[in-house]
């Protein structure tokens, strides 16, 4: 069947409470016709991975504003792979350009830096989140 909406899990890892950006992204993706499983604040990589498994998510989006993306971004990828999931990970938030390369090398599928526009967000998620046709 075609036309099934992509299913995206959105979360913030760690203690950082800046969820304005993640909430805006949730609405942007919804308005682009996607189904967003919104977990919000204070999630762990392992917890998000378990949710991605149960939700059969097509992508996981995490938002980072506290300079811990180099620790938690790769940890998110590893947590998914530990469950045998190939789910692509998109990292957004305050990520310096140099670090984007490091994250991609660690298996992060896409990095959305500060100031990414709504069309850029939607395009990046659509590119990586392809509901497979099972």
């Amino acid at each position: 069947m075609t036309g099934a909406p992509p299913r995206i899990v959105l979360a913030k890892l760690g203690f950082d409470g800046h969820d304005r950006g993640l909430k805006i992204v949730a609405r942007i993706l919804r308005d682009a016709g996607m189904e967003v499983v919104y977990l919000g604040l204070r999630q762990t990589p392992e917890g998000v991975a378990a949710v991605a498994e149960q939700e059969d998510a097509d992508a996981v989006g995490i938002s980072m504003h506290n300079a811990s993306h180099l620790t938690l971004g790769p940890a998110m990828v590893e947590a998914l792979r530990a469950l045998g999931l190939a789910t692509p990970v998109v990292v957004g938030g305050i990520v310096p350009a140099d670090d984007a390369e490091t994250l991609r090398a660690a298996g992060v599928a896409a990095v959305l830096g500060p100031g990414a526009s709504a069309p850029e967000v939607v395009a990046a998620v659509r590119r990586v989140a392809v509901p497979d046709d099972g």
Partner: peptide
């Protein structure tokens, strides 16, 4: 509910169960 306009949805209930 899904949005009647776009078909998208925000599903936020599981947070309080997890």
């Amino acid at each position: 509910p899904s949005s009647p306009l776009t078909g998208g949805a925000i599903l936020g209930d599981r947070v309080r169960m997890d």
